[in-house]
Amino acid sequence: METFIGQGIALVTPFTSENTIDFPALKKLLEHTKDADYWVVNGTTAESANLSKSEKRAVLNFVKSNNPTEKPIMFGIGSNNTAEVVEQLTTWDLSGVDAILSVCPYYVKPTQAGIVAHYTAIADASPLPVLLYNVPGRTGVNMSVETIVTLSQHKNIFGVKDAGGDLAQAMRVISSTPDDFLYISGDDALTVPILGVGGNGVITVLGNVLPQEFGSTVKNALNGDVKLATKQMSEMLDFTDALFEEGNPVGIKLALDIAGICGKRVRLPLVEGSEELEQKLSSMYEAIKISSRKSIFVSNFDAKYAI
């Protein structure tokens, strides 16, 4: 699945002041992130837990209708209810979708055998290839290396998005799964080291607001220039950390509001970010953009006057 190598943007869902979906703002976000390798619709960052089924369908249809370059689309369908996931996979209109992102069952804390059985049922039923999603900070359970390796043998499971924050686990999974099984970072700050040990890309929160800057970092790391990618990422690390200080997508929506892309509204039980966080993100964002403009100028100057 080379389609999903590189930078995938986990799109936020913008809201109006009436708490409905802000489709003009979503269109602006799609334009802003048009250089990403693919889009992820209805992931955690989209506040999928607080969207109705009709809203999820509406967002997906809107993204499909505003995709002139036919960018690949990954759609999130996950639950702690296996039967519900299977029902959605087999009854929803998934035309125009290229793959499914399905989160590890949350809250119920299944055993590893339960996780294998859950994903096997999903992969057997899905009309599209499935990407596993390990995010123990939200689900309360970590998918073990052995579980991921076992599931990598299923013909309809093509990779894992891992937000476990464990570089050692990443190395063990990458070295123990088939060469065509994708290991995708779910942690922006760890993306460069993960790509350095053989990972294939990232599904990013940061990329919503800094798609070019972070996209360049990902490309350099994938091309083997980890030193340059590390330097680039170091300039965004504090900003990345700040994005998650008050939860996701609270921070990234503040940043998108600062950038003039969409509003900072979130749905309860989430609340808008604090003024202190907004001020911090604003100063950091401006510093990154200034640094980026300087880098582009120097690069263009060197290219123009190279001997």
Rank of each mutant, 00 (worst) to 15 (best):
S54R: 14
V41S: 00
A46H: 15
V40P: 03
E55D: 14
T33K: 07
P14D: 07
L29S: 11
K28I: 05
K34M: 13
I9R: 06
W39G: 09
V40N: 03
T13D: 08
T13N: 12
D22P: 03
V41M: 02
V41K: 01
S48D: 05
A36D: 04
V12W: 00
A10R: 11
A58L: 09
G43M: 04
N42Y: 01
P24L: 02
K28Q: 13
V41R: 05
E47G: 10
V41A: 02
Q7R: 06
N19H: 14
K28V: 07
A25T: 03
N19S: 15
T45F: 01
H32R: 14
V59K: 15
E31C: 11
L11E: 14
F23W: 06
A10E: 06
E31G: 11
H32T: 02
K34R: 15
R57S: 13
L60W: 11
L30Y: 10
W39P: 09
I21D: 04
P24V: 07
T44M: 08
L51Q: 10
D35G: 09
N19Q: 13
T16M: 00
K27V: 00
A25F: 01
E55K: 13
V59W: 08
Y38C: 06
D35E: 15
I9F: 01
S54C: 02
L60A: 11
T20F: 00
N19Y: 13
N61I: 02
A36G: 10
K53T: 07
K28R: 15
S52C: 01
A25R: 03
K56P: 09
S54P: 04
L26P: 12
S48G: 07
K53D: 12
L60R: 11
I21H: 09
V40I: 13
Y38G: 04
L30V: 12
D22E: 05
T44E: 01
K28P: 00
K56T: 12
Q7D: 09
S54F: 08
E55H: 10
Q7L: 15
E47D: 08
L51C: 06
N19M: 12
W39L: 07
G43V: 00
I21L: 00
N19D: 14
T44Q: 00
E47H: 05
S48T: 12
E55V: 06
K28C: 09
D35L: 13
N42C: 15
L30S: 10
Q7V: 06
L11P: 13
T16R: 01
T16G: 02
T45A: 06
H32D: 01
S54E: 14
A36T: 08
L51T: 09
T13R: 12
Y38V: 06
T44H: 01
W39A: 04
K56H: 13
L29A: 14
K53W: 08
F62W: 03
R57K: 15
A58N: 07
F15L: 11
I9C: 07
G8D: 04
H32W: 12
E18C: 10
A49K: 05
P14L: 09
T33A: 06
N42A: 14
D35W: 06
K27N: 13
T44C: 07
F23R: 05
E31I: 15
A58V: 01
K27T: 14
E18F: 00
T45K: 04
L60H: 11
K53P: 08
E55T: 07
S52L: 06
G43S: 06
S52W: 03
L51G: 05
T45D: 02
K28D: 08
K53H: 13
N50V: 00
